[in-house]
Design a protein around this nucleic acid. Structure first.
Lengths: 218, 218
DNA sequence: ATTACTAGTAGACGAGTAA
DNA sequence: TTTACTCGTCTACTAGTAA
């Protein structure tokens, strides 16, 4: 986000503009941002232009609400602060084992991915993934991890089908090296795929619904 | 903080410049901030001027570390995000009862404060305060509360002695109305004073070391 | 390589004001 | 009262370059 916009957007969020429309005149916003009415008005137009806010321009006072895109941008900054003040380089994500449905297996086994896993992660994954549904209270941690670089596994095209970029983060489950894999572009992930050179379900005796903890490095 | 500085300061924090000196050239910082080497250099000089960072300008590459003042500024922004995303208007602060040492009693009993407590909070405090040492894991919540307005109780001078501004936040302990009181200007508070129209120690049967929870509104 | 000066320029800002 | 246009000023930026 243009840094320019974050200050105004944050002030609007503090006024409650994430949850609902907030009535605020350009003069009031200007005062809050320590700038003129004219500049605040311009800033509002810019935020509208960037689709960070929507506005209901009534007869008397405009009412402003932050869009999901705006919230997204604020969360990015929030996550940066969480990385600074809360989280070290290793984070424990809790969740429960879920059924794989064979999807993960199909993807992971693509040699286009396999080659990269082997060279970047240092192991060749067992053919198939362990799916884990992340506990809601740890969803934020996942956001923070996803805001970091991780190991980019490039997408490719094979037999006319295209496979997208994914990001792998090295991790450990009960001291066994593994990695969590998430698609590069996609939000609101509550399920992660875990790859490992061993068959984790068998090795660790896991079933659907088993609680597990993954320690992720980033 | 000038909003202008927060972006650069945050990037430096993400690079680890809170914990230790970080080697970063003005060109690298410029790339990270999407600005020219020259502008990044100027920004660094400004941050130095504002005492947000200190620098060790070696022969090859400068090494930068964020000062406590700089960390303070970053925390302010972090706390704004916490208010946006984490905390509702009521927060539970946990801690243990500590000895008052008579200090609180002396201050609170000043009529200059008493009058204001009565008109602003709606009750006349029992003469004396309950001291509470806040659990370390709730210290951050206290920071967030302190970053909000609260009820300003103005300082005054009496018998040649000056009493500073304090902020009161309405609160409840086990459903009894009370308020927590903190000095306006002072950082790193881990002890709060609780005022109430009743004698809380007697009413709730508290002793030094008793665990209590205060629900603070802000 | 660095950092950081000077100079020129683009863009952000506020005053005045229209709607 | 609002919002937001135009326009002049002034700041913040980058390019060139010195140390």
């Amino acid at each position: 986000m243009g840094n320019k916009y974050s200050f105004a957007l944050r002030k609007l969020a503090l006024l409650g503009a994430i949850d609902d429309y907030v009535a605020i005149s350009s003069r009031e916003l200007g005062t809050a941002l320590e700038m003129s009415q004219q500049s605040a008005s311009k800033r509002i137009l810019e935020l509208l232009d960037e689709k960070y806010i929507v506005r209901d321009l009534g007869a008397r006072r405009q009412r402003i609400k932050i869009t999901p895109k705006g919230v997204e941008e604020l969360k990015k900054e929030y996550n940066e602060y969480r990385r600074i003040f809360e989280l070290s380089d290793q984070v424990t994500i809790r969740g429960v084992v879920a059924s794989g449905m064979g999807e993960g297996h199909y993807y992971i086994c693509q040699e286009g991915y396999m080659k990269q896993f082997e060279s970047i992660l240092g192991f060749r994954p067992f053919e198939g993934t362990l799916n884990m549904v992340v506990d809601p209270e740890d969803a934020g941690k996942l956001d923070v991890i996803r805001s970091t670089d991780g190991n980019l596994i490039s997408g490719f095209t094979c037999d006319g089908r295209s496979f997208g970029d994914v990001i792998a983060y090295k991790a450990k489950i009960r001291n066994i090296d593994c990695a969590i894999v998430v698609p590069e572009r996609s939000h609101y992930v509550d399920t992660i795929e875990i790859i490992c050179q061993f068959h984790l379900r068998r090795t660790l005796g896991l079933n659907d619904g088993s609680k597990i903890e993954v320690k992720v490095n980033f």
